[in-house]
Lab assay of single mutants.
Amino acid sequence: TRVETATETAWISLVTALHLVLGLNAVLGLLLLRWQFPAHYRRLRHALW
């Protein structure tokens, strides 16, 4: 059971790390998009709101 718990903890930390990386990538991607295409982003925002 100790090995199972260790594997579980490893999986949880792995999934958490993946989520963090994906979240960071999403934020960075959005920031890059805003920086690269400000006009396009503004138009998109007007369409959404």
Results as ranks from 00 to 15, higher is better:
Val27Cys: 07
Val3Gly: 03
Ser13Ile: 06
Arg43Glu: 02
Thr7Pro: 07
Arg2Asn: 15
Leu33His: 03
Thr16Ser: 10
Thr9Lys: 11
His19Asp: 06
Leu48Cys: 10
His19Ser: 15
Ala26Gln: 02
Glu4Asn: 09
Asn25Ser: 15
Thr1Ser: 10
Val27Ser: 04
Val27Tyr: 07
His19Leu: 15
Arg42Gly: 08
Pro38Gln: 06
Thr7Lys: 11
Arg43Gln: 08
Arg2Trp: 10
Leu22Asp: 06
Val15Arg: 15
Gly29Thr: 04
Gly29Leu: 12
Tyr41Gln: 02
Ser13Met: 02
Ala39Arg: 06
Ala10Ser: 13
Ala39Glu: 14
Ala10Tyr: 14
Leu33Trp: 04
Ala47Phe: 09
Leu24Trp: 01
Arg45His: 05
Gly29Met: 11
Leu44Thr: 02
Leu32Asn: 03
Val27Ala: 08
Glu8Trp: 13
Leu28His: 01
Leu24Ser: 04
Gln36Ile: 05
Leu14Trp: 15
Leu48Thr: 08
Leu33Ala: 04
Leu32Gln: 01
Ser13Asn: 06
Leu32Pro: 01
Thr9Cys: 06
Leu33Lys: 01
Trp49Gly: 04
Arg45Gln: 06
Ser13Leu: 12
Asn25Trp: 15
Tyr41Thr: 04
Asn25His: 07
Ala17Thr: 07
Trp49Met: 08
Val27Asn: 02
Leu20Asp: 00
Gln36Leu: 07
Thr5Trp: 06
Ala47Pro: 03
Leu14Gly: 15
Leu48Met: 12
Ala47Thr: 09
Leu20Tyr: 04
Gly23Lys: 00
Leu20Met: 07
Leu32Arg: 01
Leu31Phe: 09
Arg42Trp: 10
Leu14Val: 14
His19Asn: 12
Leu32Trp: 06
Leu48His: 05
Thr5Met: 13
Val21Ile: 08
Val15Phe: 12
Arg43Phe: 03
Ala47His: 06
Ile12Gly: 15
His19Cys: 15
Ala17Gly: 11
Arg42Thr: 11
Gly23Asn: 04
Asn25Tyr: 10
Ala10Asn: 15
Leu33Tyr: 09
His19Ala: 15
Arg45Trp: 08
Ala17Gln: 04
His19Thr: 15
Pro38Tyr: 04
Thr9Ser: 10
Glu4Val: 03
Thr1Ala: 11
Ala6Asp: 08
Ala26Thr: 08
Gly23Arg: 03
Leu32His: 12
Ala10Trp: 13
Ser13Glu: 12
Trp49Lys: 03
Leu24Ile: 08
His46Gln: 08
Ala26Asp: 03
Pro38Gly: 06
Thr16His: 09
Leu48Asn: 01
Thr9Asn: 14
Val15Ile: 11
Leu24Arg: 00
Val21Asn: 00
His46Asn: 13
Val27Asp: 00
Leu32Lys: 00
Thr16Ile: 15
Val21Asp: 00
Leu14Cys: 09
Thr5Phe: 10
Gly23Gln: 02
Arg2Gln: 14
Leu44Val: 06
Thr9Trp: 15
Leu28Gln: 01
Leu20Lys: 00
Arg45Gly: 05
Asn25Arg: 00
His46Ser: 12
His19Val: 15
Ala6Trp: 05
Trp35Asn: 08
Ser13Lys: 15
Leu30Pro: 02
Leu28Pro: 01
Glu8Gly: 14
Leu48Ser: 02
Thr16Leu: 15
Leu28Asn: 03
Leu31Tyr: 05
Arg45Glu: 03
Ala10Thr: 13
Arg45Tyr: 07
Leu18Lys: 00
Leu18Ala: 14
His19Arg: 08
Asn25Gly: 15
Val3His: 01
Leu28Ile: 10
Arg43Asn: 10
Ala47Asp: 06
Arg2Lys: 14
Leu33Cys: 09
His46Leu: 08
Val15Asp: 12
Asn25Glu: 04
Gly29Phe: 14
Ala6Glu: 11
Arg43Asp: 03
Leu28Cys: 11
Thr1Trp: 05
Leu24Pro: 01
Pro38Ala: 05
Thr7Ile: 08
Ala26Arg: 01
Thr9Pro: 06
Val21Arg: 00
Thr7Met: 05
Pro38Phe: 05
Trp35Asp: 04
His40Met: 11
Gln36Glu: 05
Leu14Glu: 08
Ala6Phe: 08
Leu18Trp: 13
Arg45Asn: 04
Gly29Cys: 07
Leu31Ala: 12
Phe37Asp: 01
Leu32Ser: 00
Leu20Val: 12
Arg34Cys: 14
Thr5His: 06
Tyr41Val: 07
Leu33Val: 10
Thr1Asn: 06
Tyr41His: 03
Arg45Ser: 08
Leu20Trp: 13
Trp49Phe: 08
Phe37Lys: 03
Leu24Glu: 03
Thr7Tyr: 13
Ile12Pro: 11
Val15Lys: 11
Arg2Asp: 12
Arg34Thr: 08
Tyr41Lys: 01
Arg34Gln: 03
Arg34Pro: 01
Leu22Ala: 02
Trp11Ala: 15
Leu33Phe: 13
Val27Gly: 06
Leu33Asp: 00
Leu14Lys: 08
Thr5Ile: 13
Arg43Tyr: 05
Ile12Thr: 13
Ala17Cys: 12
Trp49Ser: 06
Leu44Arg: 01
Leu28Met: 09
Ala39Gln: 12
His19Gln: 15
Glu8Tyr: 11
Glu4Gln: 09
Gly23Phe: 06
Ala17Trp: 11
Leu18Thr: 10
Ala17Lys: 08
Gln36Asp: 02
Val21Thr: 00
Leu44Ser: 01
Ala39Met: 09
Ala26Asn: 00
Leu28Asp: 00
